[in-house]
Simulated scan of single mutants.
Amino acid sequence: MPDPSAVAVFADLHEEGAELDSLVAELPAAGWAGPTPAPGWSVAHQIAHLHWTDRASLLALTDAVAFAVLVEEAAKAPDSFVDAGAEEGAVLDPAELLARWRAGRAALDGALAAAAPDARFPWYGPPMKAASMASARLMETWAHGQDVADALGVRRVPTARLRHVARIGVRARDYAYAVRGLAAPAGEFRVELTAPGAPGAPGASAEVWTYGPEDAPQRVTGPALDFCLLVTQRAHRADLALTASGPEADRWLDIAQAFAGPAGPGRAPGESR
């Protein structure tokens, strides 16, 4: 019997991709060439990157030998392989890129659903189960979708799908320290995030997503959307309504990142949303 939590994240990944698709489906060619907040990346680069990483995920699930070749290629050019993958697709005609991205998403949806629930699949970091891979793909789709939305001047409505992004951000705390050559603090932090939907608004929710011990002295509180923007480095901390209690929690908010790879520069204050 399928794991209900895995089925839920697979469905959420599908919905996240569909939402981003709706932003670019009718975009003219000039819009695809428009710049996004990522230096040197157009809207086409953002979609091409997602297509490229979807293909890598599909290989990890279905062809470990071919995926190992990708890992070897990445190791040869660690500072450029991500940009090269995006550039490869960005030069395509927008209609062709859109069609390839859609086909790749559909193939990945099928492979995730067919994967053995307890099997672990190779990745650029530690091996992952299919549900964890889907969560990671959702996080990246949402983050790059934010870049596209910012480029198009669209303000997206946050959804409960952000719970996957928030969870990765919390779990990646120690990685954010390690990638900067810093020692991670001992003990867990308490993180309390208000789920999307302001009290009194249509579809409002008073739900709070919590992580870590309730009595932890180091705490982070605030809107889930703001936390997700922070850990994906799509907004500067100064532009977000997040509160840190304790010096270690305060330091974490300056370096937090949910994504693998080197520490990014993030956005400058005032560039957010």
Score class of each variant (00 low, 15 high):
219 R>F: 08
68 A>K: 03
52 W>S: 15
14 H>Y: 04
196 P>N: 09
138 L>M: 11
13 L>I: 05
226 D>G: 04
113 A>C: 03
64 A>Q: 11
101 W>V: 06
107 A>K: 12
98 L>E: 14
93 D>R: 11
101 W>L: 04
65 V>D: 10
225 L>I: 12
145 G>F: 05
210 T>M: 05
158 P>Q: 00
194 T>A: 14
104 G>F: 10
7 V>S: 14
5 S>Q: 14
127 P>K: 07
92 L>F: 08
44 A>E: 12
78 P>H: 02
24 V>D: 14
101 W>P: 08
242 L>G: 03
88 E>R: 15
142 W>H: 02
210 T>D: 03
216 A>I: 07
166 A>Q: 00
37 P>A: 10
113 A>P: 01
198 A>H: 05
144 H>K: 09
102 R>M: 02
230 L>V: 10
108 L>K: 02
21 D>I: 03
103 A>F: 06
64 A>I: 03
200 G>F: 06
127 P>Y: 06
1 M>D: 05
33 A>S: 15
241 A>N: 13
137 R>I: 13
105 R>E: 11
48 A>Q: 08
225 L>K: 09
93 D>Q: 13
112 L>Q: 02
206 A>M: 04
66 A>P: 03
248 E>Q: 14
264 G>C: 03
153 G>A: 06
213 P>L: 08
16 E>Q: 15
134 A>K: 01
33 A>M: 10
17 G>I: 02
262 P>D: 13
195 A>E: 12
160 A>R: 08
163 R>L: 03
71 V>A: 15
91 V>R: 15
162 L>E: 11
104 G>K: 07
254 D>R: 14
19 E>Q: 15
150 D>R: 11
46 Q>F: 08
146 Q>V: 12
172 A>Q: 13
98 L>V: 02
259 F>T: 15
7 V>F: 00
218 Q>I: 08
11 A>T: 14
244 A>G: 06
